[in-house]
Design a protein around this nucleic acid. Sequence first.
DNA 1: CATTTCAATAGATTTTATCTATATAACTTA
DNA 2: TAAGTTATATAGATAAAATCTATTGAAATG
Lengths: 301, 301
Amino acid sequence: MQLPSIRQLTFLIALADKGSFIAAADSVFVTQPSLSAGLKELETILGAKLVERGRKGVKFTPAGKEALSRARTIIAAAIELKDGVRAAAEPLTGTFRLGIIPTIAPFLSPDAVPALKKQYPKLRLYLREEQTARLIEGLRDHELDAAILALPYEANGIETMPLADDEFLFIAPKNHELAIKNPLKPEDIDISNILLLEDGHCLRDHAIKVCGASGLGTEEVRATSLFTLVQMVAGGMGVSLIPKLAIDAGIGLDGVSVRHFSPPIIGRQIGLAWRKGSSRISEAKTLANVLCKQFDKKLIE
Amino acid sequence: MQLPSIRQLTFLIALADKGSFIAAADSVFVTQPSLSAGLKELETILGAKLVERGRKGVKFTPAGKEALSRARTIIAAAIELKDGVRAAAEPLTGTFRLGIIPTIAPFLSPDAVPALKKQYPKLRLYLREEQTARLIEGLRDHELDAAILALPYEANGIETMPLADDEFLFIAPKNHELAIKNPLKPEDIDISNILLLEDGHCLRDHAIKVCGASGLGTEEVRATSLFTLVQMVAGGMGVSLIPKLAIDAGIGLDGVSVRHFSPPIIGRQIGLAWRKGSSRISEAKTLANVLCKQFDKKLIE
DNA sequence: CATTTCAATAGATTTTATCTATATAACTTA
DNA sequence: TAAGTTATATAGATAAAATCTATTGAAATG
């Protein structure tokens, strides 16, 4: 069976993007008759008229729109194939762009990045610290090769795998009543007294979920990072949750009491995310393995 | 940027499938030197060695495996493009293969098929009545273009959309104690007395879920269809659930009492499923719309 | 109604793909 | 170990295709 060629599909896409044969021909560096012939051939192969050649721009038929949409995914796949082969041929060389959420990045990178550099000397690791939504955007726009964030995260075209579990601990000002209560349950926390990160941090959402979703309307102060959050707690402004990862990484805990909650353990799952079909999936997973060990060093003391 | 050609990718796939240059060349109807040259060109374009030419068969490098896997999806997509264009050019002509689960098929087809035939005279609708698992297989193997089944159904590479809701009604022998109880709740049903379809029917699983999952070990009799199920109930062997769809379609109800459960309404959602990337998605959705109206005629009396 | 604009066509030319024939390399076997 | 066998690579010729230039045709514009 005669299949359309990659070249013909690029012609079709160029035509759709430019709106005219001449402009499209220019954009793919051929003459107009070449492009005309290529598209005619494509229509013959597919057995259907794809574009109506009107005087004011071309108009795609339903068949043409169908072909166009599928052509775009095929061309994208062909590009990914090429990139994927390069990545498979010499894995973990060149630039790898990794996004990390702000409640993990400061506590992970100092240890993990040198470890990676050591293991993969040719790797140029570029890190971007942003909130989950931005990271997903970055993956979609091919600006990131992978991202580290909190699971579960469901999104179209994004795939994930778990890396490690991160327990939430309770922090309060020294001498706070809950600093000695036993057993300590998330429900014990006075909701009006809890300090949270500003909007957009997934850790904020986790904390809200853990402490009961409702009735949390009136907080006026929100921290911009876990560092300031701890300082605010130390300053007596309230209590909060903090991931064990941050503590193990040595976040300053002067002036606060830190306590585990009574079982069951509450926490978040840290995971790796990548764009489906990405050319660097296997590299991402290799990196994930190294990072995973890095986590374990911290999380299992 | 120079992309690999469709032809080169078919060469690579043929080589993987046949294991030698000569056999692969045969299978794509070119001579061995042509295939050799094509693959060499592909390796140049991708900038990596894809296969090790050993004496006993060829061996794919990691880069080659990466390329191969992606090449297969690209070729599959190219075929789907071609089919999709044909379908878009003259929708709902030719053969359309639709699978339907057994607890829907008998009650839907008599009305729906003539309606579809009338609306799309050129359509040759081929129907296959099988349980959900088989239908999904059929979709995956390209033996079916779409399927009607009960949602939710999650499966890799399968997409769905809802068509209609189908209420479950209670049936019991005439004069059964539950035939007059008010209000009537699913929990009221004596679990040891309930009749179910044989294994594999999703309706069986739905019924089990509705009446409480546990403690349902000892049923000895299982019906092979809703028709026999009703007859067994009429024969005093027990009680059961039956979808409203079947009743509206005129399943014989002599000798049984039929009752709605007290709110909330329990039931199943009927939906359409298709293979992701299928060339006939839009046709399937068009069909679904017609079928949906067909459902509505029945379900909203 | 001439002019402009854009796509289609014709014919020449270049490039690419494929073929036949042969060389080369790695293993087998006598 | 030398001849035979099998599999891929290479060379050169040939066929097929893609592309180019030049031109035509058709629709819109002033």
